[in-house]
Amino acid sequence: MNAIELEDVWKFYGDFPALRKLDLAVPEGACLALLGRNGAGKTTLLRVLAGLMRAGRGSVRVLGADPRNPEVRARLGVLGHGVALYDDLSAFENLALFARLYGLEDASRRARQWLEKVGLGASAGSLVREFSRGMRQRLAIARAFLHDPELLLLDEPFTALDDRAADTLQELLREALARRRTIVLSTHHLKEALERATHAALLVHGRLAFFGERSRRMLEDPGWLYREFGEAA
């Protein structure tokens, strides 16, 4: 079964088509490296998949249903450009809030577990505004993972992460893939993304220039995809 199915998907900003006629099927348990230069449409595609905006045309199915279906959203984990944390709440309050919003019955216990897991147990009661950048990033990672999502949508997740936060995220992604979670990861870091990916997709000016299983050639020469398909679309 496919975790993501797009059929003839278009997204317009005014008259400008940010996504053009996308057809894509990502199988469950896959790790898709979503590649493309700035402005290619990666973030727009991830926002459509996360239900943060609607496609202008076409069919979007995520985990078998419309992404705005609350039952689908309960199974999605989203990590965007912002950390999506409230500066005026403590680390514990932030995680407990999202655990409640995701309908977890043991929200407080779950929040404390994840604070320990990302190494912030000692700072549970501190306000997020007092956190360093690295601490905020680790807390944001915990927020995205705490409800054990079946599909993770990660927009440039390694950008500007410090070493500790990057290690935390690497470990969590390894665990998620081992449990056959589906991951869509947009990135500029070709080599790192392709090492983890089972599939790769390349967006060029909003069009899907390439989609397929990751090959040995991509690993040996990460720039090959861009050279081969980058200007073709």
């Binding site: 996360a50 239900g51 943060l52 609350p70 912002g82 950390v83 999506a84 500066d87 999202f98 919003l101």
Partner: peptide, 15 residues
């Protein structure tokens, strides 16, 4: 708006 919190709320399963 700060930290894109609205996105996290809208992406959550809260109707």
């Amino acid at each position: 708006l700060p930290n894109d919190c609205l996105d996290a709320l809208v992406a959550s399963p809260v109707p």
